[in-house]
Nucleic acid binder design. Structure first.
Length: 154
DNA sequence: TATTCTTTTGGCG
DNA sequence: CGCCAAAAGAATA
């Protein structure tokens, strides 16, 4: 397992890789976890991520292996198909997946890989919805930044 | 199987 | 616009 951090406009991004596959991405730093030396395989991942933070239209399609149930993987794959610069509502996603809006929200909340799996492009019918389990606060700032970065928000 | 959870939704004041 | 209750599906024990 290789873990390293990337400096982004929204803060430090912590990436965990196993066998050149992204396992998790987290905005919160976990103390006590040493940064492993980055190898050749991870350097490509870093480049892709940093490129996205410069060009919102570039959606990095990196090999990911999120740990989750069958249903969650289905939702996450659907999320990955949302093109940069557009958003979906929980309701419309639920229709496509033949499920309910709250079930979709459940899976989104369990998403271990923000940014790469664009759960920030899913909004509620009323407002923005939430992000990483929070409906307000720091997480929402990040969500808003990402959407603004992609031109969805003003 | 029962319990609890959810980044929702629609309606009403 | 803000508050409330309902409701569907899935995760968890």
């Amino acid at each position: 397992m290789v873990q390293f951090s990337i400096e982004t406009p929204v803060g430090e991004l912590w990436v965990t890789c196993v066998d050149a596959q992204v396992v998790s991405v987290d905005f919160a730093k976990v103390d006590g976890v040493p940064v492993s030396p980055v190898t050749q395989r991870e350097s490509g991942i870093i480049a892709e991520l940093m490129f996205y933070f410069q060009n919102a239209q570039h959606q990095p399609e990196l090999p990911v292996s999120p740990a989750g149930t069958e249903f969650q993987q289905r939702v996450w794959r659907a999320l990955s198909r949302i093109p940069a610069g557009s958003v979906e509502t929980y309701g419309s996603l639920a229709q496509k997946l033949k499920t309910s809006a709250r079930a979709v929200g459940n899976a989104c909340r369990a998403n271990p890989i923000p940014v790469l799996i664009p759960c920030h492009r899913v909004v509620s019918a009323h407002g923005l919805g939430g992000y990483m389990g929070q409906t307000e606060g720091k997480e929402m700032q990040i969500k808003q930044w990402l959407l603004r970065h992609e031109g969805v928000l003003q």
